[in-house]
Design a protein around this nucleic acid. Structure first.
Lengths: 194, 194
DNA sequence: GTCTATATGAAGATAGAC
DNA sequence: GTCTATCTTCATATAGAC
């Protein structure tokens, strides 16, 4: 739910979004942010008083984008298989960033889980959103509990691919594994249709 | 290959190993380390002049432990399936830490991949070690390239499970997915035996 | 709203006494 | 080898002029 925000706030949030992804939340500094959006450090504090506030704003921003994206997918893809495969497609589309910075959602959550539980709880909302959307898709074919399990498994599979691809800066691994996961989905839904 | 190291060096390395895992490399400070091993900060610098040196020492320490562990597994488990499943078992055995701090190898690598490529290269040796050991196991049943691919896929699957389990502090997910992966290995090796 | 200047604290790292 | 004291740099955060 985006509150009313100034152009400046928007541009700060976008810069921070990128910096968190590329440097990590704890490494990113106010100096980095100020430089990235051409503001003075002092002026930044006019908009956001703490790093935690910035994180919250970035997560809200990401969640808005994700909700729009997922809604668009439902318009665009009529079948469950297409929707699930579209999810897998993300890592293909983002390959060139993923091999360097990993998954924006996954890497942030891992960082914050180490000793910043309040912040991790905020970051986790990204997982919640994908998880519930994927569950909703699987529920068209499966009982509630099984749908939940498959949603989580699919997320685990894509996250795992990203971790290994980042470790080796290996683009081809992403391609190869995306195909494997897509085939797994085909076989799975095929088995369920019977 | 562990060089000759004093008792003090060993105890520092073990403290740092833990701190990197629980707080992250960049968040961990010399103050943390000094407190953790009951030394003064100044004295710490007598043993290790920089944080990078500490990282190298910790990775060497971890690699030694891993090599010993893998060698022991080869003594203990005669079959490929048992060995691969023993690898999957790690996340079961470490569940109570994993749900809070993730994978020691994976989370460190993800952190360092963001803007510290020289340090990531050091950390990546942990992945290399597992990867080549797993490949060696698969090569008993598969051609070189396929063995490599399956080794990476197995690593991706366990890493992914850990990411999701950490996101939700969900122990049961680890159990559930470990069983699934074990079954996948059974089916896979079964298919190859034919 | 935007800036510069500054307060304050913590980090990595060193010097030198013991 | 171990300590305390200190240097320097950089971080978060604030104050106050414009």
């Amino acid at each position: 739910m985006a509150r009313e925000q100034s152009k400046q706030q928007q541009s700060i949030i976008q810069a921070v979004d990128r910096l968190i992804y590329e440097k990590g939340f704890n490494v990113m500094s106010f100096k980095d942010i100020a430089e990235a959006c051409g503001l003075s450090k002092g002026n930044l504090y006019y908009y956001f008083k703490t790093k935690d506030e910035l994180l919250k704003a970035v997560i809200d921003y990401r969640l808005d984008n994700m909700r729009n994206m997922l809604q668009a997918w439902e318009q665009q893809y009529p079948t469950v298989l297409e929707r699930l495969q579209r999810y897998v497609q993300i890592m293909i589309n983002e390959t060139s960033q993923v091999i360097y910075y990993g998954c924006p959602m996954g890497s942030l959550n891992i960082e914050l889980a180490k000793g910043q539980p309040e912040l991790q709880a905020i970051s986790r909302a990204q997982f919640d959103l994908f998880r519930s959307w994927l569950k909703k898709q699987f529920k068209q074919l499966l009982a509630d509990k099984a749908a939940e399990h498959y949603a989580m498994r699919l997320m685990a599979r894509t996250q795992g691919v990203v971790v290994i691809a980042q470790a080796y800066q290996d683009k081809r691994f992403i391609k190869r594994e995306a195909e494997e996961i897509n085939q797994w989905l085909v076989d799975l839904l095929d088995g369920l249709a019977k």
